[in-house]
Amino acid sequence: MTASPGLLRGLGDERLAVAIRQMHEHPSRSWTVAQLAKEAALSRSTFFERFTQALGMAPMAYLLAWRMALAKNLLHRKDGSVFEIAQRVGYSSASAFSVAFTRYTGLAPTRYSRE
Rank of each mutant, 00 (worst) to 15 (best):
G90T: 12
R67H: 13
V82A: 08
M60D: 13
A54Y: 01
R9M: 00
A69Y: 04
V18S: 02
S92T: 12
V82F: 06
E39F: 07
T52L: 02
Y104K: 01
V99D: 10
E84Y: 03
R77M: 11
P109R: 00
V18A: 05
R103E: 14
Q35R: 14
A94R: 15
L75I: 07
A3E: 11
A17W: 05
K38H: 13
F83S: 13
A69C: 03
L11H: 01
E39P: 03
A86G: 10
E84L: 08
R9F: 02
A37R: 10
D79C: 08
A3Q: 10
M57Y: 00
R103T: 13
I85D: 00
G56N: 04
Y62A: 06
S4M: 13
E39R: 13
A3D: 05
A69M: 07
P27T: 11
Q87E: 13
R15D: 12
A96R: 08
A3G: 03
S43H: 09
S43L: 03
P59Q: 00
L36M: 13
A94H: 11
A86R: 06
Q35W: 05
L11Y: 06
R50K: 08
P27W: 08
L63A: 14
Q22T: 06
L7I: 14
T46G: 07
E25Q: 15
V89L: 05
R44E: 13
T2K: 12
R88W: 02
D13N: 15
H24G: 05
T32H: 14
D13W: 05
S93R: 13
A69V: 05
M23T: 12
A17L: 03
L64D: 14
G56V: 10
A34Y: 05
K78T: 08
L107N: 01
A58R: 08
P59Y: 00
A61L: 06
T32F: 06
E49H: 09
I20L: 07
L42V: 09
S95N: 15
L7P: 00
